[in-house]
């Protein structure tokens, strides 16, 4: 089974390279700036709770200073953002498109499954599922890559680095004891 071509995807217009200069305001950028401002004020408040102003050597002095720098920077960022022309397209298209949103949900589900079903089975299912979704097909390929990856990770981490990987408790008694341990 071969992978189907991806349906009319608009290439993401922005290079995310670290040095790139942006000139458009992304959807949700101003609210994000306000969230950062609130976070900064929260940091300052917690720093103040730690006797931030009682003595110069108090545990809260550096947190208050860090919060103040964050708050000032956030204000400058918000003001700068408002001057930019808005980029075309909504939040769901540019910031949280379906591939990103679904991948995050799959990662969260994978993490939640790690302890109950164990690393090997959870990883096998996660890899097969996400590769199948991102390639829009190719079940056989997805399963083969997933199986090879689980075996490689097992050999490197479990056998060479002796990392204890989650074994899972849900299927204990169903799978033969000692399998993949």
């Amino acid at each position: 089974m071969t992978a189907r071509p991806r349906p009319g995807r608009a290439p993401f217009p922005r290079n995310h390279a670290m040095h790139e200069i942006r000139r458009q305001r992304e959807p949700g950028e101003t609210p994000f700036g306000f969230v950062l401002l609130l976070l900064s004020l929260g940091v300052m408040a917690e720093g103040h709770r730690l006797q931030g102003f009682e003595a110069l050597s108090a545990p809260g002095v550096v947190p208050v200073a860090a919060g103040a720098v964050m708050a000032l920077s956030a204000l400058v960022i918000i003001l700068g953002t408002r001057r930019l022309a808005p980029a075309p397209g909504g939040f769901a298209r540019r910031i949280a498109p379906r591939d990103v949103a679904l991948s995050v949900l799959m990662i969260a589900a994978y993490m939640a499954a790690l302890e109950p079903v164990g690393f090997h089975l959870a990883t096998l299912v996660f890899l097969a599922g996400i590769i199948l979704y991102l390639r829009r097909g190719g079940l056989g390929f997805a399963l083969a890559v997933s199986l090879a990856s689980v075996i490689a990770v097992h050999v490197v981490f479990r056998m060479v680095f002796t990392v204890v990987l989650p074994q899972g408790w849900l299927l204990r008694g169903i799978l033969p004891p000692g399998l993949l341990q």
Partner: peptide, 29 residues
Amino acid sequence: AVLIPLILVLSVVGTYSIQNSVVDVYFML
């Protein structure tokens, strides 16, 4: 489509291996 999921799995294993803690993995996410 193959490399990204593999990076995600390596990230999970790498994080978990530090303290054998799933909480760390949630922090990572």
